[in-house]
């Protein structure tokens, strides 16, 4: 079953087509990455998904509920963590969770039980009574995610959740999210600027100018939009030139760009004497993203 279904979604601001005929689906339990440069239409799409922004066309289903007519049910399926922390800074962590839970009808004993679960999951006990304004960035993020999950949603939307966080805190955030996926089968819908975070996704959609430019698994995208690199160590450059290979110097060796792994294999078999110390690596998600959004004319 699909957790999210978007068909021909359109959202215009006057002449600007913020989202222009976008369609994609996210399967239940999937880790879905939604990528795009600033202004690509990611936030608008999320805003429509959450029922905050009316759309100009298309159909949206969340957790099996069409947001036309079943918006409340759809909203109950969603937990959202925005890029900017929107917790009430003057209130304690407990109050932030309590007031959010009440909006989903969770109060009294039910909330106490839920709070204990969240404390165990996110290790909040130590600063439960502290005002949010006095927490570190990492602690705040944990509270943010805990609050988004207070009503046990099936889908967690993370809108650039790790922007501005230090590497250690980013790791903490992802450890929690991946643990939740594993334990609860949570569907995660992620937008991010860190391409290495998208590399772990089950499925990736790249948006630009309000349109879907590419979608697939990270491997499919790498295969389609980037090549492989062979890095050669200790090679004689004159031999490379004799063989007519195009290369660039990197660190202790040289790098040769090939279209795919098959071409790399063929090259190694053709010049075995050259390839004594080497490694073959695929292009990263950074390369995919740049190829799709920046240099797509060359490779699409």
């Amino acid at each position: 079953m699909n957790a999210i279904e978007i068909e021909h979604l359109k959202k215009y601001y006057g002449e600007v087509k913020a989202v222009d005929d976008v369609s994609f689906t996210v399967e239940e339990g999937q880790f879905f990455a939604f990528l795009g440069v600033n202004g690509a239409g990611k936030s608008t799409t999320i805003s429509v998904l959450c029922g905050r922004t009316p759309r100009d066309g298309g159909r949206v289903k969340i957790g099996g509920f069409d947001i036309d007519g079943h918006l409340d049910e759809a909203k109950k399926s969603l937990g959202v963590v925005f890029q900017e922390c929107v917790l009430d800074r003057a209130l304690s962590v407990r109050d932030n969770l309590k007031y959010r839970a009440a909006l989903y009808g969770i109060a009294g004993a039910k909330f106490t039980e839920k709070l204990q679960t969240l404390c165990d999951l996110f290790d909040l006990e130590g600063f439960l009574k502290r005002p949010v304004g006095k927490l570190s960035g990492g602690q705040r993020r944990r509270v943010d995610i805990a609050r988004a999950l207070v009503h046990d949603p099936k889908i967690l939307i993370l809108d650039e959740p790790t922007t501005g966080l230090d590497p250690q805190t980013r790791r903490q955030v992802w450890d929690v999210v991946h643990a939740l996926r594993k334990e609860r089968g949570l569907t995660v819908f992620l937008t991010t600027h860190y391409m290495e975070e998208a590399a772990d996704a089950d499925r990736v959609v790249i948006l630009d100018g309000g349109k879907v430019l590419a979608e697939g698994t990270p491997l499919e995208l790498k295969n389609a939009y980037t090549g492989d690199f062979i890095t050669l160590y200790g090679a004689d450059e004159s031999e490379l030139q004799k063989a007519g290979l195009d290369y660039e110097k990197v660190g202790n060796g040289v790098r040769i760009f090939v279209k795919n792994t098959a071409e790399a294999t063929a090259l190694i078999l053709k010049y075995p004497a050259l390839f004594t110390d080497y490694e073959v690596t695929k292009g990263g998600m950074d390369d995919v993203f740049l190829a799709v959004t920046g240099k797509r004319g060359e490779r699409l």
């Binding site: 959450c50 029922g51 905050r52 409340d72 009430d88 959010r100 909006l103 989903y104």
Partner: peptide, 13 residues
Amino acid sequence: VTGAVNDLRVTPV
């Protein structure tokens, strides 16, 4: 100003 109202609007309230 802080966007808290947008956050509240993603709930069924």
